[in-house]
Nucleic acid binder design. Structure first.
Lengths: 350, 350
DNA sequence: GTGAAAGCGCTAACAT
DNA sequence: ATGTTAGCGCTTTCAC
């Protein structure tokens, strides 16, 4: 790496002091320098292929124009679109996203978080929220700028951007009820996450709204938002409640597990049991049968989270404790995408 | 953000000079400090919750212990496992991966690359290789440490870690030939990528090895390694060569597009046309029909790429031009996973 | 074995 | 409008 040009090199070539060069090169301060000088400096910079050393700048300004992004599991197709939305907004403003996979591991998460803090990221967008989350409580007390995406915390500390989960679940139950289902189960996500809680509550409420008795609308929690865990939860459900004719899954991977569990015991979907997923992630339309699911605008979720964070960063660049905004919750609208995994129950409960 | 403790704070609390504190805290130099002092310093650091400012350290040492990772498209399920493999290896050695999505856009790629260089990343793992790649040629001349993964360049400049594409394609053709197919087409990837070239060559060679005439083994290139482009290429193929009974696709997304194209014109897979994908990415087993595909060990690809890069970084920490290693190609073994998308042709060509 | 001093590259007071 | 100076936090000579 033939050593890079520094601002001193540029200044020397332009025949000015490096402070002047700095001013000329920074759009915010270039007006405070004679136009001719500015041009000369910029010309010199171009000639030398100068780009500022971001590390030195960060050290001096204690701003890095980077944002840490914590993701629970990049292999879940839910997250790549969120990342794309984040990057789309950040890059326009000159920010860079530093992505970090936690693999749902607390220790990894703590380590990654600290590594990013040590690198002086200006703030975080966090998709690994838990209802009780010591790391986030610490971040809150320390005044670290954070925006949560998709998953929140019990105690409202940071702004949250999520899909309108409650409405999504209601749409799912409505759809099934209209098809004539009365024994509808919910395969909930793991209990530690707000998404699970919100969706489960919404399920109970929607069931009541359709006057479905509690004994016909059981809820079984999956150990994780993953296919295997979903399959296990579905087994458990089918053992305990063979009467169900429809399943509202906590997310698409749980739904996929349910499809497998049904197939494994010779039940067919949607003829025997209808299944609805949540998120409408990529490839659910390729499933067998194509999965009816609640579409959440993930890219827009990411974009909105980035916007909120930038707002916060730009209003309090010094990370002052002053005027911490009341953490708002931004919910983006969802809609039900009906595909082949839902149909009228074989035998109407009369 | 209640301002963090610096090494001076630690030194003051421990009653030593900050240089001593630095030595005590750094495992590599802690032996050059009296054991008792070292303990005192470490104790003080713990008490203050001190973690070193990575930015300051980078500026001083011109090493950041970060690695830039350039990805063409995070929403392609091929890449998340590669990322996981990379992070798995890097994190053990105290390195952090800075991921960057280029969306197959040259300008974005250049910008992201420069942003990472400006942040003083120690090297790059690049999955956006092109046969002719000005950016990489520039990086080569500049002596930037780079390892390529999956996709290479025509001119061998950097080490490359990839699956054994040639063998993979041969396995695919062998499988189809054994089933009795003689009119086998290849839906190649876009021509600018080495993967496309290698796989296409391997396809031609395997066809010859089975004594399949050239007119029965057409090759049509897809505009991109994506579903839509794959579907278009398949249309084109089926128009020009209605006689084909099997397709070897350049990757799984192209294969998926082919499945759609077949369905759109009332052909069924595998009864009318068999289809084989490449990569065996997540969810191909859910496709309709489940896709036969060549399994590439992506996580291991990423891990190996990270290992090669670390090797390089540790041998020439100063990024000296000295002793640039001959760029080796590491190929990891692949295997064919047979599923429902391949079967004997309906009518044997006699 | 420890302290003093220098400096990585940059920007923001404070001059002039 | 530009130059001077200082210093972000750290590590690394160089002294002692």
């Amino acid at each position: 790496m033939s050593s890079r040009a520094t601002i001193s090199d540029v200044a020397r070539l332009a025949g000015v002091h490096k402070a002047t060069a700095s001013r000329a090169l920074n759009p915010a301060t270039s007006s405070r320098v004679k136009a001719a000088t500015a041009r000369r400096v910029q010309q010199a910079a171009r000639q030398l292929g100068y780009t500022p050393n971001a590390v030195a700048r960060s050290l001096r300004t204690s701003r890095s124009f980077t944002v840490g992004v914590l993701l629970p599991d990049l292999t879940n197709p839910l997250f790549p679109p969120i990342v794309r939305g984040i990057e789309e907004v950040l890059s326009v403003q000159g920010y860079t996203a530093l992505l970090s996979n936690t693999d749902n591991d607390d220790d990894r998460e703590r380590a990654q978080f600290q590594a990013l803090v040590d690198r002086q990221v200006d703030g975080f967008i966090i998709a690994t929220g838990l209802r009780r989350h010591p790391l986030l409580e610490g971040a809150f007390k320390a005044g670290v700028p954070v925006v949560l995406v998709n998953r929140g915390t019990d105690k409202p500390m940071f702004p949250l951007v999520s899909g309108d989960d409650a409405t999504g679940v209601a749409l799912a139950v409505d759809h099934l009820a209209e098809l004539g289902h009365r024994a509808i189960a919910h395969l909930a996500g793991p209990p530690g996450l707000t998404t699970s809680l919100v969706r489960t509550r919404a399920f109970r409420q929607a069931s009541q709204a359709h006057a479905l008795p509690a004994e016909l609308t059981p809820v079984v929690a999956s150990a994780a938002y993953e296919e295997k865990a979903g399959a296990r939860a579905a087994e458990e459900l089918l053992d305990a409640h063979p009467e169900v004719t429809a399943i509202v899954a906590g997310n698409d991977l749980i739904a996929l597990g349910a499809l497998h569990a049904l197939r494994a015991r010779g039940l067919s979907c949607p003829q025997d049991v209808s299944v609805i997923g949540f998120n409408d992630m990529r490839f659910v339309d390729e499933f067998q049968p194509p999965l009816t699911s609640v579409r959440v605008p993930h890219q827009e979720l990411g974009a909105e989270a980035a916007r909120l964070l930038l707002e916060q960063l730009q209003s309090s660049p010094e990370r002052s404790h002053s005027r911490r905004p009341i953490p708002k919750i931004v919910m983006l609208p969802v809609r039900l995408v009906v595909r082949g995994s839902t149909a009228a129950p074989r035998t109407r409960t009369s």
